[in-house]
């Protein structure tokens, strides 16, 4: 059977873009640009057919106001001060030695995993290495690389990259992201993060099913 390199590349690129979007949403308080993009016709269509409801006011309020509302919601949910959902893997994984606070055993695992692929943490990045948005960005980068390899008709590398992605999903993202999303859905006051968390959780399920079976070499 003829290999459709383009289709494989497109599929990887699609996954990369979705990871990229989710990473951006969790990285920091949404900017006006991000909000405008999310209101754009393409995503609006996708959200509508998926039933992702970002809230009426998200679409009707002026963007500058939405920025303000979401900044407060983001701080309340993910930063504090006070009770919040710390968006870090180590917080959600019961590490063996009860040290799964910030910068726990799991944090180091994530950092090492990422660095082993040749990537570095940006010198300007001052978050903790296992922040949800970093893990999502990592998947974005991996699948983007995979897409390139398919385009280069380098099956071995592309499939190997898929293996690495599967490992990262199994060892990390799939172990905690759903629980994190449940917490967000539970605690969010505005529809925006509730919907995004739902979407993220759903997408993780999709990923589990679509790339879980081992790709034969």
């Amino acid at each position: 059977m003829e290999t459709d390199w383009k289709a494989l590349a497109d599929s990887a690129k699609s996954r990369s873009d979705i990871y990229g979007l989710l990473s951006a949403v969790f990285r920091e308080e949404p900017t006006e640009t991000l909000i405008r993009q999310m209101k754009g016709p393409q995503l609006l269509g996708a959200f509508t057919s998926l039933g992702v409801k970002l809230g009426e006011r998200f679409y009707t309020d002026p963007e500058s106001e939405v920025v303000e509302q979401l900044a407060i919601e983001y701080s309340r949910l993910f930063i504090g001060p006070g009770p919040h959902i710390s968006p870090h893997e180590s917080i959600f994984i019961d590490a063996e030695h009860g040290e799964a606070g910030l910068w726990g055993v799991q944090t180091v695992e994530v950092k090492k995993f990422i660095e082993t692929t040749g990537l570095d943490y940006d010198s300007g990045f001052c978050g903790v290495p296992d922040h949800v948005s970093v893990e999502l960005e990592f998947m974005q980068k991996l699948s983007e690389w995979e897409a390139d390899k398919w385009l280069q008709e380098d099956r071995k590398s592309a499939e190997y990259c898929l293996t690495v992605q599967r490992m990262f999903l199994e060892k990390h993202l799939l172990c905690w992201l759903a629980r994190f999303c449940d917490e967000v859905m539970d605690q969010a006051q505005l529809p925006f993060y509730r919907a995004i968390a739902d979407l993220t959780k759903t997408y993780m399920e999709y990923e589990r099913e679509s790339i879980a079976p081992p790709v034969s070499a």
């Binding site: 951006a24 990285r27 993009q37 996708a46």
Partner: peptide, 20 residues
């Protein structure tokens, strides 16, 4: 969803900070 994301990514999301 991918098409929408792709479109958004291409336009830029105004992110201040890259992690990796």
């Amino acid at each position: 969803l991918a098409a929408g994301s792709s479109c958004a990514m291409a336009a830029g999301l105004g992110l201040n900070q890259k992690a990796l």
